[in-house]
Design a protein around this nucleic acid. Structure first.
Lengths: 344, 344
DNA sequence: ACCCCGTATTGGAACGATCCAATGAATGGG
DNA sequence: CCCATTCATTGGATCGTTCCAATACGGGGT
């Protein structure tokens, strides 16, 4: 067993194609081919070049490649300026898987600050003009989002995490099927014997929220259960959510599906004020499986968005689009996973 | 009032220096100078060139710049592979402010996946060899972290969010002063009349945790309060935290400073089991001000890390280092902010 | 009028990769 | 044995910028 330190040379990073070529005793282009079209080389030559490459620790200079091939192998991810108040949600794990998937394909994710307000598009324009990205990933699309249309018009490759909520449905997207999630939640609660299942949602008008409401509604109908008076709305705020939950409780609702974990917490609090506790006889299922869910007492069942998968699929669609700008658009809906804990 | 659409031309992004030069009727280099050293031009020429630049919507091609200047104007941020289990914490807001600060300085943050395990350093090596980043930002430094030493040896510019917990203290870093935070928390609780103030911490050996414990200890001593039997340890897990908190409660502890919000939740739960409720007579202050803090009932007071500031300062130090590799290293400690809510 | 000097402006060369057309080597058929 | 044909390999030109050395310009001093 040899020494622990890797045998690979930690050469100073000024190795060029030409140097590798000299070492291997071949021409410059042959080395390039060894990397990009190995099938062109005679096996024996290939072997010799490959040895030279890793003896010298050669890596192609990305800027030089980008300049010649007109492709930066960078994917832009615009993060909206914090001055808009709310930072982009759940971005963490999504970015993680996105950038891992990108790496596997030889791409990288580059973050850029998006100017708030009217001219958020100029940030995209700028990155494009600079050739600073080959394509984009959007997230947090909402009604009236101009980015999809804008990018589409210009034929810029992109994928959105989140469907097109307004305007024509253009471009590739990946989204989580909120309706399928809430629908599964309803069926689970019904399986536990609940009949008076309510929905705690956001005010109508938000694409995401309405989608989640629809799943509850659909499942209730299929099961032959009445939805009358079982739907309450509240902004995503604990105090208001508690009030809305209290109203549901007053109508004899025994279980609730919530559009977010925050709203689910409203149900917790409403129960507590009524001197009851969440669980078998007063169940609740939240949405997003935020880090708080397992920490609550009792721990909160919730619908987890498959963010890892979303990231991977986004990158798959984007790469396909980069490879063939003319291919038909593709939409992918992924199902959230019902994570069962004590609250249901 | 003119039409809403911006008057700036949305030119296809193939504008080069040469084209601008032709339009302005000057030489190629003059345009370059207009951008990089405007003081060299006669005001009149400068004006003419500038007009040509934005008539054509010119932006320098970053790859070409990078190739010639040997600087990519990209900052690498390695995110560890998810297969290690826990995703990097609190990364969200930090990345946000980091990348905004970078943008303001004409830099951008590029994410790269770090191979887990032994050879995480090869990911850094690779990015360097490719000239894919001019410097790095690290976060989540812990004991036995080899990255700092490795980068330092090679003279690679970097900043760490998190001090060097082991080995020689090398390189620039920015960190949050955990001790100052817990110390402020103790003083606040003492100001409310508490005398038997406990500490709920992580097992000894983690740099961050020990630091937070130290602040509590120091403040207690200064106030002439005894710490005997008032410190309990638990991993960051609700159930175990509850047990530890229960022990503190049993010794008559009336207020607790916790090393994390999760641990603080343990105190909540211990109280609840004893049929009491967090608040004036049984206070607690958490750490990190996670999103859950305001959602709890009662809402949790917590020490918020100034992540926006950390991001900005990281970028400031890194830019300074990039500008002058020989400058003395700089360390910045920022104080967390005590966010008071119902629990204290 | 001449020369000189500083300021303003210029085009060639280079960064390190890939594209392309051309060359050299090897194979096979007549 | 030679030429045609394929296969393997090569060096020149190029991407768009900046560095560099050289040139053109405009006065001021003698």
């Amino acid at each position: 067993m040899h020494a622990h330190s890797s045998p690979r040379p930690r050469t100073g990073s000024a190795v060029t194609l030409e140097m590798v070529a000299a070492r291997a005793g071949v021409g410059r282009q042959t080395v390039s081919n060894a990397i990009n079209s190995p099938e062109l080389l005679r096996p024996q030559t290939l072997e010799r070049v490959r040895r030279a490459i890793d003896e010298l620790g050669y890596r192609p200079h990305r800027a030089a490649q980008a300049l010649k091939t007109r492709a930066s192998r960078l994917i832009g991810y615009g993060i909206r300026s914090s001055s808009t108040g709310v930072p982009t949600p759940v971005l963490d794990q999504f970015l993680h898987s996105l950038s891992e998937a990108a790496d596997r394909a030889g791409y990288r994710v580059v973050l850029f600050a998006v100017a708030p307000g009217d001219d958020e598009l100029t940030s995209y324009q700028q990155l494009l003009d600079e050739h600073g990205a080959d394509g984009f990933v959007l997230s947090g699309t909402d009604r009236g989002d101009r980015r999809q249309g804008w990018l589409h018009e210009r034929g810029v490759p992109y994928v959105a995490f989140g469907r097109t909520w307004s305007g024509r449905d253009v471009g590739d997207w990946v989204d989580v099927d909120g309706a399928a999630g809430t629908s599964a939640a309803v069926r689970h609660l019904a399986g536990l014997g609940h009949r008076r299942i309510g929905f705690l949602g956001w005010p109508k008008g938000s694409g995401v929220g309405d989608d989640r409401a629809r799943g509850w509604q659909g499942a209730m109908r299929e099961l032959g259960l009445s939805t009358r008076g079982r739907r309450m709305e509240s902004p995503d705020d604990p105090e208001r959510a508690t009030e809305a939950a209290a109203k549901l409780l007053a109508t004899g609702t025994t279980a609730v599906v919530a559009a977010s974990d925050t709203l689910a917490l409203g149900w917790y609090q409403a129960l507590r004020r009524a001197d009851r506790t969440p669980g078998a006889d007063a169940a609740v299922i939240g949405f997003d499986d935020s880090p708080i869910a397992p920490l609550l007492f009792p721990s909160l069942s919730s619908l987890a968005q498959p963010l890892d998968a979303v990231g991977r699929v986004c990158m798959r669609l984007l790469l396909a689009r980069l490879g063939d700008p003319e291919r038909p658009t593709e939409h992918v809906l992924l199902e959230p996973e019902l994570v069962l804990r004590e609250s249901a």
